[in-house]
Simulated scan of single mutants.
Amino acid sequence: MSAPSPKHDVFQAIADPTRRRLLQLLGDKDMAVTVLSGHFPISRTAVSKHLRILSDAGLVREQKVGRETRYSLQPEPLLELKRWLAYYERFWDNKLTVLRQFVEADDPEPLRPKGPRLVDAGKESGQ
């Protein structure tokens, strides 16, 4: 029997900027929700809801320490995101290579937009 699939996937979990910031904070050290909520202009309950989504996606783990619950980053699910982004890196790398070649060229041809040239409407109509 396989492990149950998470309620939220990694892409859904990181779609929200608050959750991305929570992951950054937890990258440094484990923290309780009271400490985490001090970094945001939202309620502790709202931060807890964001942590629940991250937990459902497998990105954070809860651990009881005395009377408080501490959260820790679990980066393994981010590998799925890394693999997905790796596919698109080749497009970025290609564009950067072309830009570098243009900048480093001895006598670069001036950049001119392709297609028809846009002319001020007033000049075209003789105004």
Score class of each variant (00 low, 15 high):
96 L>K: 10
20 R>T: 09
60 V>M: 02
94 N>I: 00
118 L>A: 11
19 R>L: 08
114 K>L: 11
39 H>W: 08
110 P>W: 13
113 P>G: 08
77 P>W: 06
77 P>D: 09
114 K>N: 06
48 S>Q: 11
71 Y>C: 02
17 P>N: 07
12 Q>T: 12
65 V>Q: 11
38 G>T: 08
56 D>R: 07
11 F>T: 07
122 G>T: 10
59 L>T: 03
114 K>P: 05
2 S>N: 13
19 R>I: 06
1 M>T: 15
52 R>S: 06
9 D>F: 00
27 G>K: 12
65 V>T: 15
38 G>A: 05
7 K>Q: 10
16 D>P: 01
113 P>F: 10
126 G>M: 09
66 G>K: 04
83 R>K: 15
10 V>A: 04
32 A>D: 13
117 R>Y: 12
40 F>D: 03
37 S>A: 13
78 L>Q: 02
123 K>E: 10
74 Q>I: 03
54 L>R: 01
25 L>I: 03
114 K>Q: 12
104 E>G: 09
44 R>N: 06
87 Y>M: 06
124 E>N: 08
2 S>H: 12
69 T>R: 02
20 R>D: 04
85 L>T: 14
93 D>N: 07
46 A>S: 11
6 P>K: 02
4 P>D: 15
104 E>P: 05
61 R>Q: 05
8 H>Q: 12
118 L>P: 08
3 A>Y: 07
94 N>D: 02
35 V>K: 06
110 P>Q: 08
107 D>N: 13
57 A>G: 03
90 R>N: 01
127 Q>D: 15
92 W>A: 12
1 M>Y: 05
50 H>Q: 05
76 E>C: 04
105 A>I: 08
95 K>L: 14
98 V>T: 11
53 I>V: 13
106 D>F: 13
34 T>P: 01
